[in-house]
Design a protein around this nucleic acid. Structure first.
Lengths: 196, 196
DNA sequence: GAATTCGCTGGTCAATTGAACAGCGAATTC
DNA sequence: GAATTCGCTGTTCAATTGACCAGCGAATTC
């Protein structure tokens, strides 16, 4: 039911999840504190634990949100690309991936943080969110099967690293990766790199 | 002087730094605790704070060690490649980078963790260690200058991501990135990708 | 319009954190 | 061989952590 309470409730949860995504992606799971998340969402820590009874569940909610965004992007891209020849479609998909990475740098930071070691969060993320994505990837590609994993991580890394370390990149190279120009340049580079 | 005390001292510090690299790369700076580092080095926490008075300094020592390994690799590669034609040399450099990433997955995890946000550690790492490396990179490449940063991070990401998330990759794709075969396959892929 | 639900607050808890401290005792220096 | 250095230990401390709980009061339901 769409009561005023429910609307307010969902708005609050969104604020909390958004803050959680930021803090987790900046500080990692262990480095992030629930109080810092609450602070950024302009909420009390007790409100946070009310909506998300444990840090674990908060992290899962953040992951759900991020993968939801990717899902939206994917579906839109597939729809738009259904009538384009396969060669041009692959190029466009690569471009879209770069643009997604630029708009959601937190996404790959999540993946990189959790994939480092064997732990429950990694297993949950793989089983819940990553496996369906990888399945789609393998189905859309015609590389020999023993190369699929290599290409997958090469594309992912090449597309996202620039945006994942934007602050470092700017200080090191002078390039600000968040500008529209930088994003499109990178998209073009990645698309060229992985064609064929 | 090479006294017995000094030898023991250096051995202990090496043990501590090695453990620190592991823990920092797995849990990030904020997630890592000095007690966990000490535990893995089979030392007491007070011994750790004796050799490295603050967590910050321990982290710097770990970074110094990791960049030292890269420096050794670089120098060796440059030496060996001095009489090879530039085209083949670039290929071999790419291969060496992949092998280094495979043997030192902690290296890029460090970079990715620290580059996420503006903070003192990031600035220290860029100014102390990253800048000289990036300078060498730009000098050895003949891309147009506005592409250099893009290529730099594309190569870095494509080479290292597979090994940075080895645990995740194995669960997701079934491929164990730590095997010799996987490493060489990835090296070949990256070398082909970035040639020309 | 009375009863009840429920989003939210403030306070509290044990556990963990990074750091500091006073001492011990074997290795070194004189 | 006496004096001293110094690598190392055990303990302690204040601060921060994730989680829990008893209530309040406006929105909802009856």
């Amino acid at each position: 039911m769409e009561t005023r309470r429910n609307r307010q409730r969902e708005a609050t949860r969104r604020r909390l999840v958004r803050a959680a995504i930021q803090v987790f992606s900046e500080l990692g799971f262990g480095g992030a504190s629930t109080r810092e998340v609450a602070r950024r969402a302009r909420a009390s820590q007790s409100l946070l634990t009310y909506h998300f009874p444990s840090k674990e569940l908060l992290w899962q909610a953040a992951a759900d949100d991020l993968f939801g965004r990717l899902r939206v992007e994917f579906d839109r891209a597939r729809e738009m690309g259904s009538d384009i020849p396969p060669r041009a479609r692959e190029r466009e998909m690569a471009r879209q991936l770069v643009r997604f990475s630029a708009r959601n740098p937190e996404f790959f930071r999540f993946l990189l943080e959790v994939g480092r070691s064997q732990n429950e969060r990694m297993e949950w993320l793989v089983d819940t969110h990553l496996t369906p994505i990888y399945r789609e990837f393998t189905a859309s590609r015609d590389e020999p099967p023993e190369l699929l994993a290599h290409v997958f991580y090469a594309i992912a890394g090449a597309s996202s690293t620039l945006f994942s370390v934007a602050a470092e990149c700017e200080r090191l190279t002078g390039l600000d990766p968040t500008t529209e120009e930088a994003i499109e340049t990178h998209a073009e580079l990645i698309a060229r790199l992985f064609e064929r």
